[in-house]
């Protein structure tokens, strides 16, 4: 399967960001096993990366790979919608893994 490169932009360590990080890590472990890299970027520490990726809102999840690039803005609370947006529909993904 494709390797996934995911960037998760957050602002500081708040309840909302911790929850987003936790959700993403769990989703990736369950669906992508070893085929992914998840980079957590705090805009307060690395604003120049946010500048490069033109990120406005946090949390923002960017799927860098596989192409096309895709952005998901919001608190990542709806697991099913995230999987759809990432192109990881659970039914088919489960079979292919």
């Amino acid at each position: 399967m494709d390797n996934y490169l995911l960037k998760l932009y957050i602002t500081g360590r708040t309840v909302r960001t911790e929850r987003a990080i936790f959700t993403m890590q769990r989703l990736c472990d369950e669906n992508l096993k070893d085929h992914y890299e998840l980079v957590i970027i705090d805009v307060l520490e690395k604003p120049h990366l946010a500048e490069m990726d033109k990120v406005l809102a946090t949390p923002t999840l960017i799927r860098e790979l596989p192409l096309p690039r895709r952005r998901i803005i919001g608190d990542l609370s709806d697991t099913q919608k995230i999987l759809n947006a990432l192109g990881l529909d659970t039914g088919s993904a489960g079979e292919s893994v």
């Binding site: 932009y9 957050i10 602002t11 500081g12 909302r16 805009v43 307060l44 604003p47 120049h48 946010a50 500048e51 990120v55 406005l56 809102a57 946090t58 949390p59 923002t60 096309p68 690039r69 895709r70 952005r71 998901i72 803005i73 919001g74 608190d75 990542l76 609370s77 709806d78 919608k81 995230i82 947006a85």
Partner: peptide, 21 residues
Amino acid sequence: DDETVMMGDYDLGALLARIQN
């Protein structure tokens, strides 16, 4: 060039951080 999906709550913390930077 980007597809964007809106999903749930967010803030503009990144924009503010970029302006401050």
